[in-house]
Design a protein around this nucleic acid. Structure first.
Ligand SMILES: [Mg+2]
Length: 487
DNA sequence: TCTGGGGTCCTAGGACCC
DNA sequence: TCTGGGGTCCTAGGACCC
C-alpha cells in the first residue's frame, strides 16, 4: 500500500495534497516493523479508536433545513449585543470568523452573513439521528458533544488499516444518507490521535493514522492541537520555546509537570509521545446541571438580581426533575461588569428536589457574591446529584411547599419569590423564528420591523422556497415547532 | 455595542477524623 | 501533651472542552 504522502511532510503539504473531491485521506502506511510491538498496543494487536466529527454542525443543520442558506455564509449564536458565535458555515469561516468570537466582530468581518439564533431542539434531534446510526454500525458510542463522538468498534479489533478505511467510508456514507450531513472521520490507536485525524480530514474527509506512526503525525502540529492544551498552557510552553508537539515530546516529564502541573503534565507528556490508553465508554449521568444568563445590560439593583437568581434556579431545577435527580449542593455564580466571577456554594446534609429550598439557598448565597459594580451574569449550578427515586427511600418527606413545581407556573413562582413577572412569550417576530401559514406552509423569519415581516417558506424537503413579506399582525402567520423544518 | 452556555476535571487550603 | 501524617469532604477559583 502506497502512502499518498508521508507523515513527515509539512502540514501545509498535507492540506494541499488532498484533492478537493477526495473522501479518502491516507496519512501514512503500514507500521514500520520496529513499531509493531509498542507496549501500549496490547502486545502488538492494533487498537482502533474512531472519532466522528460533524462538519460545521449547527450551521450545516441550518443550511439543511433552510435550503436557501446552502452555499451562503451563516452564523449561529447569540444575536444580542453580547452574543458570541457558536457555529459558522465554511462560507463564513472564509472571512476569518471562528467559534467563540463575539458576534459583533463576526458581523463586521462578514457583513453578508445570515445571523441566526441557536435552535438547540433541532440540533439535538439531528444529533440523535447521527449517533443512532453510528451506534447501529459501531456499537457503544462515547458522545463528547452534540456533534462529535468516539467509538471503538468490536469488528475492528486487530483489523488492518484497509479494513478500518473501508469501515470509515461505510460509516460516513451511512450518516450522510440518513441525515443529509457530512461528518469527518478519524481513526487511530487512541482517542487523541483519532480526534487529531478527524481534524486533519476536515471538511468531509477521512483520515487514518497507521499504528506506530502517531509521533510522526503529531510532531509538526502546534501544541494547541492537543486535548487539554488551551491558551494558558500554550503560553506557558511558548515561554520556554515549545511550539510544536514534537518539541513538547522532547521535554522530560519533570519539565512538563513543572510547567503544567502534575496531572496535566504527565498526561500531556504521554499524549505528545502518542501514548493514549484511555478507554471509550458511553457517558453516564451528568454530574451537575446549571443555568446561567448574561444580561443585555448590567443589572444595577438587588431586586433584578434576586429575580434572575429565582429564574435561573427554576430553570436548573426543571432540568434536575427531567433527569430524575436530586441535588445536595447549590452554587451561585455572579459575574460583575469588570468580568470577574465569584461563586458561593452550600452543601446540604441530604439531597433535595424541593425548588423552594433550592431558591432559598441560592438567594442566601447570592448576597455574599455581589460585586461592587453592576451584575453582568447570574448562574445557578446544582451538583452532588443522586437519583431522586433512590433518594426518596432514605429521606424524610419533602417539606410542604405552598406551590409545587408541577402546580405552579414560572410566573407564580416568580411572584412567590418577589421576582419580576416573566415576560409573556408574546413578542415581536425575530429573525430565525419558525412560522407556519395555512397557504404557504412552514417557513422562517428572515427579517422583521416596521410592522412587516419577511418570511422564507421552505423546509428540508422543499428545496429553496419563496420569500414573502406579510404584515406582522397577519393572523394567518403563527409560531411553529422548529422540528417541522426537518420534514 | 469584546468576551455565551452547558459541561468536566484539577488545585489548594482548611476542617475534621483516625 | 505535643507533633505529624494520611484520607476525605467542602469551598473557591480556574483551565479547558464544544
Ligand atoms: Mg464539528
Amino acid at each position: 500500500m502506497l502512502a499518498r504522502l508521508s507523515a513527515a511532510q509539512p502540514r501545509t503539504g498535507v492540506r494541499r495534497a488532498r484533492p478537493r473531491t477526495s473522501q479518502r485521506h491516507q496519512l501514512s502506511t503500514d507500521p514500520a516493523p520496529h513499531h509493531r510491538a509498542l507496549p501500549w498496543l496490547n502486545d502488538g494487536v492494533p487498537r482502533w479508536v474512531v472519532h466522528l466529527d460533524m462538519d460545521a454542525f449547527f450551521a450545516a443543520v441550518e443550511q439543511l433545513t433552510r435550503p436557501t442558506l446552502a452555499g451562503r455564509p451563516v452564523l449561529v449564536g447569540g444575536v444580542g449585543a453580547r452574543g458570541v458565535v457558536a457555529g459558522a458555515s465554511y462560507e463564513a469561516r472564509a472571512y476569518g470568523v471562528r467559534s467563540a468570537m463575539p458576534m459583533s466582530q463576526a458581523r463586521r468581518q462578514c457583513p453578508s452573513a445570515v445571523v441566526l439564533p441557536l435552535r438547540l431542539s433541532v440540533y439535538r434531534a439531528v444529533s440523535e439521528r447521527v449517533f443512532s446510526v453510528v451506534r447501529e454500525v459501531a456499537g457503544p458510542v462515547e458522545q463528547v458533544a452534540l456533534d462529535e463522538a468516539f467509538t471503538e468498534p468490536a469488528e475492528l479489533w486487530g483489523a488492518d488499516q484497509a479494513a478500518v478505511e473501508e469501515f470509515g467510508m461505510r460509516l460516513r456514507e451511512r450518516v450522510r444518507r440518513y441525515t443529509g450531513l457530512a461528518g469527518s472521520l478519524g481513526a487511530g490507536s487512541g482517542k487523541q490521535i483519532a480526534k487529531i485525524a478527524s481534524g486533519l480530514a476536515k471538511p468531509d474527509g477521512l483520515c487514518i493514522v497507521a499504528q506506530g506512526r502517531e509521533r510522526e503525525v503529531l510532531a509538526p502540529l502546534p501544541v494547541r492541537r492537543l486535548w487539554g492544551v488551551g491558551p494558558v498552557a500554550e503560553a506557558a510552553l511558548r515561554r520556554v520555546g515549545v511550539d510544536t508537539i514534537g518539541a513538547l515530546a522532547a521535554l522530560s516529564v519533570y519539565e512538563v509537570t513543572s510547567l503544567l502541573g502534575a496531572t496535566a503534565g504527565v498526561a500531556l507528556h504521554r499524549l505528545a509521545h502518542g501514548v493514549d490508553d484511555r478507554t471509550v465508554a458511553e457517558r453516564g449521568h451528568a454530574k451537575q446541571v446549571s443555568a446561567e444568563t448574561t444580561f443585555e445590560a448590567d443589572l444595577g439593583d438587588l431586586a433584578s438580581v434576586r429575580a434572575a437568581v429565582t429564574e435561573m434556579t427554576i430553570h436548573a431545577h426543571r432540568r434536575l426533575l427531567t433527569s430524575a435527580r436530586s441535588a445536595r449542593t447549590v452554587t451561585v455564580k455572579v459575574r460583575g461588569a469588570d468580568f470577574t466571577t465569584r461563586s458561593r456554594s452550600e452543601t446540604a446534609v441530604t439531597a433535595t428536589t424541593d425548588v423552594v429550598a433550592l431558591v432559598d439557598t441560592a438567594q442566601r448565597l447570592v448576597t455574599s457574591a455581589l460585586p461592587g459594580s453592576g451584575v453582568r451574569l447570574i448562574g445557578v449550578l446544582l451538583s452532588g446529584l443522586t437519583s431522586a427515586a433512590q433518594q426518596s427511600l432514605f429521606d424524610e418527606p419533602t417539606r410542604a411547599t405552598p406551590l409545587t413545581p408541577t402546580t405552579a407556573t414560572p410566573a407564580e413562582w416568580a411572584e412567590w419569590h418577589h421576582a419580576a413577572p416573566t415576560p409573556e412569550p408574546e413578542r415581536p417576530w425575530r429573525a430565525g423564528d419558525d412560522v407556519t401559514h395555512p397557504d404557504y406552509g412552514h417557513g422562517w423569519v428572515q427579517g422583521a420591523g416596521h410592522d412587516r415581516v419577511t418570511v422564507r417558506f421552505e423546509t428540508r424537503s422543499t428545496g429553496p422556497g419563496p420569500v414573502r413579506t406579510l404584515t406582522a399582525t397577519d393572523p394567518n402567520l403563527t409560531r411553529a415547532d422548529p422540528l417541522t423544518s426537518l420534514d
